[in-house]
Design a protein around this nucleic acid. Sequence first.
DNA 1: CGGTATCCGCGTTGATACTG
DNA 2: CAGTATCAACGCGGATACCG
Lengths: 117, 117
Amino acid sequence: MRHKSYACSFGCSVEAAIEAIGGKWKGVILFHLMDGTKRFNELRRLMPSVTQRMLTKQLRELERDGIVHRHVYAEVPPRVEYRLTAFGETLEPILKELEAWGSQYLNKLAALRSEKE
Amino acid sequence: MRHKSYACSFGCSVEAAIEAIGGKWKGVILFHLMDGTKRFNELRRLMPSVTQRMLTKQLRELERDGIVHRHVYAEVPPRVEYRLTAFGETLEPILKELEAWGSQYLNKLAALRSEKE
DNA sequence: CGGTATCCGCGTTGATACTG
DNA sequence: CAGTATCAACGCGGATACCG
């Protein structure tokens, strides 16, 4: 799914953007990181329905894509903090708009359902 | 994947938004529909790598979600046109920003690769 | 023209157990 | 605390064929 060849020229940057942030939990992860640096288990607590495996995987992809920075402290017990990179921060306005739009969308879905009853 | 219960309160509207537009081809479809009404095979020509099955499926989901309107003309041969709904049009600024960001992102990926060589 | 129907591979995800 | 490893299951998506 990831890292296909983006040979096409038009509309594909939209696709690339959606691939970067459209992973199953990435939007929510990024949204929480907009609040500031978070530790691994902090994120887990914020997203209880995400398994540890998936959280790790999504964070690694975001790191690979230059959106999230991972800082490992050489301590015992281990401490790992995640934060947006400068590039990741350029997503903030988009994430905020997505949240606003998503909220409208959820309202609309709820309205559609209640009018069917 | 779709129509989970959105019981949670925070960050989930981002998730909902991404689920609505994050389908494999939805971003590109919507981007093309921003140009104006398109017939089914017009969209196919604009996105040659999308199979007919997938295009149909994604369009049906966008229709169900109130983002795209499907107009069937009672003609022979059949004619079906797709266009953004009023609600779908509220996505336009977001899609444009996603495209701009995606373009930056692709540049960044290309830079990362070339500096590894 | 604009779809459905069916089959199936394979990637993604979850569950569980283990670790430095 | 913050992961990795392994295995099994599920479902997305492609290929192909057929239809009104």
